[in-house]
Design a protein around this nucleic acid. Structure first.
Lengths: 154, 154
DNA sequence: CTCATTTAGGTGCATATGCTACTATCGGTC
DNA sequence: GACCGATAGTAGCATATGCACCTAAATGAG
């Protein structure tokens, strides 16, 4: 038998690689459905989180999105340029900024709802609603601070 | 009750958002563990796939990674610059390129093995080995062409 | 053989993501 | 009230990812 008989048994075993592949695929599928409204899934996700939180600070928003602060700042720029969000200085702490949706941002979000529901329904149909719920729970657990703590403790 | 009583029920329900959050977290955790060897998890994944396939074409490699061809080309550049991989014209079809690991690339991959195993073991400890296996299976299913077909058929 | 078509990649642009270093502001201490 | 450490964001650089468009090469119709 060849020397590399058991070489690279790790292919397909890496949790990070499996996550990235699935994420790229799903991003592409969702983005294709969302395309008509002009929002990508990343941008819509950002707008949703802002809407949910009202007027969060950069730090709060970054934590909610499991996103680096600087990455959030970068991601906000095109949205700010296009008038979907505005960032204002927090009057109670002038170091901080509050991120808000503009009227246009709210309108775009509303307009995209139907398309998102379509993509989501297709996903559930292809993957199973129960399986999807369970997958989201697993992913949320992984994204949680508790998981990071357990990972670092191990 | 306020008008937005049932506003944005979709927060936390988007499969794409859940995937992206978990992927960012896991990338960060794995990258921190891999840091000493100078490879990021994305790059290591790329090298592993090349090693597995021997000398794949760009198209084959992109498909295996669920990655756009142009993204693959971009991702290869730093690795080529640093002498970990080389891209040569396919003699049997001069349109195509074959991607190969250099001796240095193989050495880096081998050197990173222990660190990857450490990260992987931590993940399994935090998430459960069975749950991890099952999660990877679900993610592989989502990344597969069959899933895309089912998504588009729905 | 010649040309249109198809196929494999490459390029340029835009967004996505994170690190490091820097700036501004707040809060507590003396 | 001036300093000092901690905290919130920003700026610059590098990689990651994808789209639209372009080039080169193989391939098939005639």
């Amino acid at each position: 038998m060849p020397a590399d008989e058991n070489a690279l048994p790790e292919a397909g075993l890496c949790n990070g690689t499996a996550l990235r592949k699935a994420t790229r695929r799903v991003s592409q599928l969702y983005d294709a459905v969302l395309a008509p409204c002009g929002l990508r899934s990343t941008q819509r996700s950002l707008l949703i989180h802002i809407a949910r939180a009202g007027a969060p600070s950069m730090g709060e928003l970054a934590a909610a999105l499991v996103l680096d602060r600087s990455a959030l700042a970068h991601n906000l720029k095109p949205l700010e340029r296009d008038g979907l969000v505005q960032v204002v200085v927090d009057p109670r702490d002038r170091r901080g900024r509050l991120v808000e949706l503009t009227a246009l941002g709210k309108a775009m979000l509303e307009e995209s709802l139907g398309l998102w529901q379509d993509a989501q329904a297709r996903f559930e149909a292809a993957f199973g609603p129960e399986q999807a719920r369970s997958l989201r729970a697993a992913l949320a657990m992984i994204a949680s601070p508790a998981f990071t703590a357990a990972f670092e403790r191990a």
